[in-house]
Amino acid sequence: MTELQNIAKKLFDDGSINLLIGYSNNENGGTSAIFIDNSADIDKLIYNENCHQNLMVYFQKPEVKKFGKLAFVVSLPGLKSVLEIASENQIKDGDAYFIAIDKDGNPSLLQDFHQIEDFITNNQTKPPMGLLKLMEKINNMTREERWQYWTDEFSKCIKCYACRSVCPLCYCTQCITDINIPQWISTESSPIGNLDWHIARAMHLAGRCIGCGECMKACPVDIPLALLTANLNKSIAIHFGDEPGMKADYKYPLSHYKLEDKENFIR
């Protein structure tokens, strides 16, 4: 039995949890989420570098919530989303258990937000180089080139909303695209409808996105969606010095203000 499985087994044996959400190997040679509701299935629980899905997305799923007390296997991005969700008052300290996987792949059980905060500080990783390079490339383009780049990318969008579904922070019970009085975002997949959707999604995640990159991985047509939120987070860091997913008492930068905020762009 692996260390991870031991921790999980202990949680079941104590009766601390009713459902554990972790990773297992799937039929197609990849890994996927596994929902374990009794200790008999624990031997299927694994963790390796292929386990990328941000499992915190299940925290808000009604059918998962029904099980009762939950435990999640989470790596760094997952833990950041825990703190971000916590800062938005969607999860309270002690609502769930987190089996954190550190950068060397070792599991440890974290129970309160302080432990998670410390863990994140000690396990910081750099964002993937590919993403940074692409961001730099786009920022170095002329405005016309950038527009061309993004309209080309957005034109591929088929509006399957997988980017929204896999995001642990897209938990609104009614998304702006689902509102039709007025129809903010056109339902068809058209250049304007797609542009509206991606701008709205990015803005609604500005200063909240913890950068797990799941939206980009889920996108069937490979739109580099994470760039939009990453770039927004960059400007938020520059303007306000805030970074989401680091503290449970984080204040959403767009819901408060400072008197001395920059206003040189305002006439």
Binding site: M141, Y149, G207, L228, S235, L254, D261
Partner: peptide, 11 residues
């Protein structure tokens, strides 16, 4: 401030 940056980034 943030929205302006996003528009710039999108072109």
């Amino acid at each position: 401030m943030v929205f302006k940056d996003l528009l710039d980034f999108i072109g």
